[in-house]
Design a protein around this nucleic acid. Structure first.
Lengths: 219, 219
DNA sequence: ACCTGAACACCGTTCAAGT
DNA sequence: ACCTGAACACCGTTCAAGT
């Protein structure tokens, strides 16, 4: 009959903070309990088990996304998708520790559904039929989430991430060691390769994908 | 002065088998040791620590890929990339438990480099300049790895994966529950959405991406 | 050089008991 | 209804000791 000490949102916020501060291994049922000032098993009042906690965290980070960026005039469909993709990438970069959770959980929560629905709308505005719009939506999510996941795989998962320029510079150092006799083309394009984790590369990929999905007709 | 009981390859093979058989949580330093008939700490003779083991497993799975599929006549660049992407997707589906490792480790081993080098060659054959070829290679890898990771996030990570038709049918059931008043477009394209985890969707995405990267000029 | 024994500081989860 | 105490079956990793 005791009152609940916290609501579920607060529990998830604290969990997310632990993830942001400490990197990948810093969140556990026990560390979360300690942070809340409670015994480990009390966590099970708020959450069914560890994997449910992870899924809830993934959905929570997705909820930070601004889906309204997908709204707008039909003719602006491309700009709407691009700005949403850019902004979502930025949000996910803010919570790097949650990204592996996003990539290992089925994305079926309400936020994932809203994003899907609005992407369908944008691609319909682009002139695509029902099936193609659906395929295009998924292709875009694959590129968005996949790109962020690979970016973050190179970091320790702690927030805030190092500035982009630093992350690229660090890659440049390691890429410089690639033997140019074995990998000549790779060595010759080292600078571009170092910048794979940057926003320009992300824009480039999204642009080409959208070009392939809805080509502007010649003439 | 005792002889090494195993070589590193064997240790990795056994680890991969544990991952395949038991799903995500079935591989641990201790379970690996038990399977090899040795005490837990003996593992550290072969591997520096757990995260090194994970990285080695990721590289090992990547090594199962057939990079020769990227070779061929310059005019066939598109076919070379497509068949490589398809085959690599199939290989990764064979070791689903290793895919999360692939997505959370920097891909800098020799196999990753060879794949990159050969992709650069293929995109050069497509007529791209050095920087664009590099960006295109990464975009393709993002799509390939991202797509497989999202596919596998819907499974329990045990090999063999259920047949594609079954996985799609299971998704269809859950997608059928989406309320059509809130998500009308999503509900209307439910069948396509259920098939997001299928090979046809993967082909579609790769095709559109390549279309955007190296458009066949009109006329 | 390789493996064991023992130990340390952790995990997630359960169950019965207290309020 | 919520939390605690206690326990269980796990983790990864270290260190000194044996061969």
């Amino acid at each position: 009959m005791r009152p609940r000490q916290f609501d579920e949102d607060h529990v998830l916020d604290v969990a997310l903070r632990l993830l942001d501060e400490g990197g990948n291994a810093s969140l556990s049922v026990r560390s979360l309990a300690a942070e809340l000032g409670v015994r480990p098993n009390a966590i099970y009042t708020y959450v069914a088990d560890r994997s449910t906690l992870d899924a809830a965290l993934a959905e929570r980070v997705l909820a930070l996304t601004d889906v309204a960026l997908l709204d707008g005039a039909p003719a602006q469909w491309r700009r709407r998708i691009e700005r949403f993709a850019l902004a979502t990438r930025a949000v996910l970069h803010t919570h790097p520790g949650a990204v592996p959770l996003l990539m290992s959980t089925p994305l079926r929560g309400p936020i994932a559904l809203i994003i899907g629905e609005k992407l369908l709308e944008a691609f319909a505005d682009a002139g695509l039929g029902r099936a193609d719009a659906s395929r295009a939506s998924y292709a875009l999510m694959v590129h968005l989430f996949g790109s962020v996941a690979l970016d973050i795989a190179e970091t320790d998962g702690r927030a805030p991430l190092a500035p982009e320029a630093d992350r690229i510079a660090e890659r440049a150092e390691s890429v410089a060691l690639i033997p140019k006799d074995v990998y000549p083309r790779t060595a010759a394009s080292a600078a571009t390769m170092a910048a794979w984790v940057g926003e320009a590369q992300f824009r480039w990929g999204i642009t080409r994908l959208l070009d392939g999905i809805a080509p502007t007709k010649p003439g």
